[in-house]
Amino acid sequence: MKITAGKQGFQSLNEQVRELLSENDEILIEDVNGQRYIGAAMDKGKTLNLYGTPGNDMGAYLNGGKIEVFGNAQEAVGNTMGGGEIIIHGHTGDTLGYAMRDGEIYVRNRAGSRAGIHMKEFENMHPTVVIGGIAGAFLAEYMAGGTLIVLGLNRDKNQDIVGAHCATGMHGGKIYVRGEVPEHHISPNISVSELNEEENEELLRCIKKYCVLFKEEEEYILKEKFYKLSPSSSRPYANLYTKN
């Protein structure tokens, strides 16, 4: 099934997509021009392949569906996503995967600021975000669970892999960073350590998938060592208050 988004507004496009998805499992949308909320709350078993640039909140509350973008995406991809898969063959804007609880997001290139804010996990739900390029400021702020991987590929020598205020208020989950960690950007309550065996396996699994998706070389990526950022306390604000 193939349709063209063109210049129509998001409401008519999304209505058309919902209607078509009631009878089809996979839709290709051409000429996407910034229409918002594409694939919002889309269920498991449904797939959207997007050509062009989808607008903000693509895949918000995604409910198990799969979205692949052959191009760049804008802000708030996978906002409060509950499960499924998002693959972006390009860059993405701010607040990638805000408060996502399950599923996977793979971004070939860079992510803007505040990626992975307040990601969380629950029972066997475990969200994973892989960013191929660099990540902007406030990466993983308030992160409460899940896995965030930043590869920092294709960056200028003077560019840090993560931006300022990385992992502020983080109280759960893990971030794996490739190569030197720019300590001056890392929040004081975060400890930097090496990956254990289990974590290494998880990392390898994700890198393999990244390489298959984007045709990159595993060997090249693994040439550099990875470090783990994790909260030194799961209760960063435990002693802030006095009961009155």
Partner: peptide, 25 residues
């Protein structure tokens, strides 16, 4: 839908809302 015993922190702002336009979103 969070692990037992973990702090449930609601940030002061929604971090996807920094303007009326964001709220609209």
């Amino acid at each position: 839908m969070i692990p037992v015993g973990s702090d449930a922190i609601s940030p002061a702002p929604h971090h996807d809302i920094y303007s009326i336009e964001d709220l609209r979103q």
